[in-house]
């Protein structure tokens, strides 16, 4: 079924969306660290060269300068790869987060689906870092349609944002258009036995798992938690109440990612329920095609399905 859907990489949304918004009257400035072709930010330079600044391969300078630029009234978009955004963590903290400046980090090649480049290029910890920064909104799109909606929302909303996009072409989920609203989970299918909470490319894989499970008699709710920060705690509490078990699936370290954040919210809720976690388990990546690396990590529909079976077995 997935093969009949159109596919696109979430990173493809950035440049064209920025160009259109600038043409429609936004005040966008893009700063780049020599990866604009891959992140698609360079599309913006082609149309608005005076609003595009190359910082060379120097992410720390780029991020602090982005903060300064934002104080002059512009909406600043900084683009690089997720692992290289991590290179400027203190600058993100001091020059963007603490003074709450209007800088959007849209970083591509998030997660292990970067594939062949191997461990150094695979960000298994990026949104843990960004989620640790006060004042940041943190988003992970499930497909290119949602990625575009997230970029639009980021430009329209003052304050620091992090959007993690991905390298591989993945199936479009929102074929009828985006449903993105910051801080709100999307229920993509309802069910009564268990809820899968996913983000990024695990959303599509969770929908595939849900279909298999449904046929096996397990009724599954799937939530796309496109916003990691602020987390949609109400949707999580409803999932716990309505389905009694939760699986969190993500392309990131489980101990510091969406899984950990959901577990914190559920533990503090009035109705804690059994949870299982699908994600990167305390390790770095390795080379391979993107779907091979996901398979090595267990980030597949089958991996999600097994986690669902485990959590359902733990229900009283």
């Amino acid at each position: 079924m997935t093969t009949t859907l159109p596919s696109a990489a979430t990173r493809e949304a950035l440049g064209p969306t920025l160009v259109r918004m600038q043409q429609e009257g936004a005040d966008i400035v893009v700063v780049d660290a020599d990866l604009g072709k891959s992140t698609s930010a360079r599309t913006f330079r082609d149309v608005f060269p005076e609003r595009f600044f190359s910082f060379g391969v120097a992410e720390q300078n780029m991020i602090s300068a982005a903060g300064g630029l934002a104080t002059t009234g512009h909406t600043v978009v900084a683009s690089t790869f997720a692992v290289f955004a991590e290179h400027a963590f203190d600058q993100l903290r001091m020059s963007v987060a603490q003074p709450r400046l209007n800088v959007k980090i849209v970083a591509s090649h998030g997660g292990v689906s970067t594939g062949e480049d191997g461990a150094s290029a695979q960000s298994v910890e990026d949104y843990a870092l960004f989620s640790s920064l006060v004042n940041f909104t943190v988003c992970v799109p499930a497909d290119v349609v949602e990625a575009q909606a997230m970029v639009e929302a980021a430009i329209a909303t003052p304050g620091p944002w992090y959007i993690r996009t991905g390298r591989p072409k993945i199936p479009v989920i929102y074929t009828d258009g985006p449903r993105f609203e910051v801080g709100k989970a999307n229920m993509l299918r309802d069910g009564s036995d268990v809820t899968i909470v996913a983000c990024g490319l695990l959303v599509g894989r969770s929908l595939d798992a849900a279909e298999v499970l449904e046929r096996a008699g397990i009724s599954v709710r799937v939530l796309n938690m496109g916003t990691i920060r602020p987390l949609d705690v109400a949707a999580l509490e409803a999932a716990a109440r309505d389905t009694g078990a939760i699986v969190v699936a993500e392309e990131h370290l489980t101990h510091s990612g969406l899984g950990a954040m959901c577990a914190q919210a559920i533990a503090a809720s009035t109705q804690p329920v059994p949870m299982e976690f699908v994600g990167v388990n305390d390790r770095y990546g390795e080379s391979g095609t993107w779907d091979e690396v996901l398979e090595i990590m267990g980030l597949t529909a089958e991996g999600v399905e097994q986690a669902v079976r485990r959590v359902v077995a733990r229900k009283r």
Binding site: Q60, S64, A65, G68, L69, G73
Partner: peptide, 26 residues
């Protein structure tokens, strides 16, 4: 005009301000 305390960032931050001003023709 800036948050500081971690050394080494002010020249970058100031550079960004000046680039923004230049764009604003200030």
């Amino acid at each position: 005009e800036n948050s500081a305390g971690a050394l080494g960032m002010g020249l970058s931050f100031g550079l960004g301000i000046r680039l923004g001003m230049r764009l604003n023709q200030t």
